[in-house]
Design a protein around this nucleic acid. Structure first.
Lengths: 191, 191
DNA sequence: TAAAAAAGTGCAACGACACAACTTTTCTAG
DNA sequence: CTAGAAAAGTTGTGTCGTTGCACTTTTTTA
């Protein structure tokens, strides 16, 4: 990696770090892009050369969730259904927030800020097509099969559904209970 | 109704009309709030006294969809399950767009504009709590029961899910097929 | 009927973001 | 090793959505 790309990555990182620090400190709406630019010692417009929007500053680290999602379906243990594998994956995601306090702070920030909640949801839902594709492939259904797409959509929705609910674990389980039975019938029809 | 309220309603209507006309004519992003204000001969600030945001100008007519939704569940014919009743309701909504050309233009506008799509979705999803409540009441489940809430959320999601899909009717049906079986099991457990 | 409460309206301004012109830095071809 | 292409960064300027403050008008109450 050349010096150029290293410097670019460095400014990008500096911006994301400064943004997160300021957001956690003062709250998202109380920090302007100018503040962030100044904290990272660059001009305001430079921020938008690195990030498409103010919200994108928060969701910098792309912890390739899509790959994990796909792996959860494809590499599930023998005898486990697709909905069950997805349910376990979602519950695991929830559990991650419980031990890492930094991640918990991050989640609390994104949940309490409407703009960030929406943005995060959009990012998360982008994986619908990819998830639907693995499900279809796994079930031997044609690409773009509505039942597979619906399962993908609903499964992804569960994390948004669980938020703000008193018992989020139970909410996820109830949601997947709803999906599991219908899926077993649909899957039987396919193969 | 006093003279004051009449004038207020008049300006509000003038704004909504001007906005819709301009949006359909030039496209949402090509029309500024200042344009709309000028077309209705008021100042820019006045627009926001009547509507909370630019998007709200489009969704002016509140065709109380929530009541229809609740009625679809509560007044469903004997022997029809809740998911089936909701599926029929959603399919009926889709059919509405096919005969009224004005509504079709409106839908096309909201679907092709990202900001409007998001806003419309948020408005639509607001009914989740109310829908979950009737479902719970109907099933004899406690208020806030996760399974009922999940069914409400997923049922509302189906309209967003069907959009942009080649065969939207089939998409809705596939989605409800997924829900119906799981629901019959859950409902059995309750009563 | 006078005063106070409430509602309507507008000006100026802020914050996010786009765009263009220009400078500086890094990479690459000869 | 150097000239110049290419990319990164800066500055300035402007647009658009949205809001706070001040002002005016209408309605209500004493």
């Amino acid at each position: 990696m050349g010096r150029r790309e290293r410097k670019k990555a460095a400014t990008r990182q500096a911006l994301a770090d400064a943004a997160l620090r300021l957001f956690l400190d003062r709250g998202y709406d109380q920090v302007s892009v100018r503040d962030i630019a100044e904290a990272a010692d660059v001009s305001t417009t430079t921020v938008f050369k690195h990030f498409p929007s103010k919200e994108a500053l928060v969701f910098d680290q792309d912890t390739d969730q899509e790959a994990a999602l796909i792996a959860a379906v494809r590499d599930r243990p023998e005898g486990v259904s697709v909905p069950d594998a997805l349910r376990d994956h979602m519950l695991r995601l929830h559990a991650d927030g419980d031990d890492d306090p930094g991640l918990a702070r991050f989640i609390e920030l994104t949940e309490s800020t409407p703009a960030l909640r929406e943005y995060g949801r959009r990012m998360w839902m982008r994986h619908e097509a990819a998830l639907a594709a693995v499900i279809a492939e796994d079930a031997g259904a044609p690409e773009g099969d509505p039942a597979c797409a619906a399962l993908a959509r609903f499964a992804l929705e569960t994390v948004g559904f669980a938020r703000g609910r008193s018992d989020s674990r139970r909410a996820v389980e109830a949601a997947f209970d709803l999906l599991a039975h219908g899926w077993s019938v649909a899957a039987r029809r396919m193969s």
